[in-house]
Write a protein that binds this DNA or RNA. Sequence first.
DNA 1: TCATTATGTAACAACTTCTATTACATTTAT
DNA 2: ATAAATGTAATAGAAGTTGTTACATAATGA
Lengths: 148, 148
Amino acid sequence: MLQFDFYIFAPDMNNTRFATVVHILTLLARQPNRLLSSDWIAGSININPVIVRKELGNLQDRGWVISRKGKDGGSMLDVSPDRITLADIYQLVKNANILGKKNLDTNPKCSVGKDINDELEALFRDTDKLICSSLQQKTLQDFVKQFD
Amino acid sequence: MLQFDFYIFAPDMNNTRFATVVHILTLLARQPNRLLSSDWIAGSININPVIVRKELGNLQDRGWVISRKGKDGGSMLDVSPDRITLADIYQLVKNANILGKKNLDTNPKCSVGKDINDELEALFRDTDKLICSSLQQKTLQDFVKQFD
DNA sequence: TCATTATGTAACAACTTCTATTACATTTAT
DNA sequence: ATAAATGTAATAGAAGTTGTTACATAATGA
């Protein structure tokens, strides 16, 4: 039945990952150069610490966070909050498997079925671009500033 | 653990409903005043006819489509395609349970946990508004015109 | 060195939503 | 009556996220 991932409504996007990651980054940004434990972070969000560690792993892969194991270990930001935009975060949590799910089973004998995927893809791409250009103007620092 | 539905990435939004509904409406718009059967429509999208009938039911509830049972029955548009915007369609497939899933379990003893839901909600709402204002400028007729 | 504390992961269950399918009642035209 | 279509319920399957347990690994400090 489907065709292209609807970029805006990415099927791999769940309802909490963006919020969770923003929450984590906000906590880290507010205590720069201080190692926060995943348990402490999880306590603020009220979720399981393993989830936090998974997301921290993603943030490390992205180069935004460094962690230290062992006693007195934890995680901290390795990038200035004004260099992380909400578009970056959006991309991070959405990029899991954004492509690879095209469903080309629409009927090629039907003039609509044959071409609709091209039209939809253009629409999805435009809409995605619109969101990103908006989110790109908002940095993590801007977001964190709201809590002062 | 979460808090607010991320309006942009609405959890009740799947990867195919928007595309499916657009496909259905496109077929109906191209053959005005003609009753198309759910089987025929399903054949173009290559999905199960029951899914099509469910969506047609939603479109009837919305007042856009009328159907007739029995032999030679089927569905057709009851509204001019230039009066249906893509924002309307977006709202239709997204409105299932857009609210009602707030999770206020973030830690109120944490200054971030206490206030982040307000900030996120504002962000989600703004982003949602941006999408809608963009999609509102595109009608079903515009979309269908591309297939000529 | 050893106990403690923390990250890093793997594995699996629970939950949700959408999609597919089967089945059948109802309606309408011929 | 029969055929063809919608309307809908019920159930299973697929996919993704979240929760949880378990344990290996690493680092600190007494």
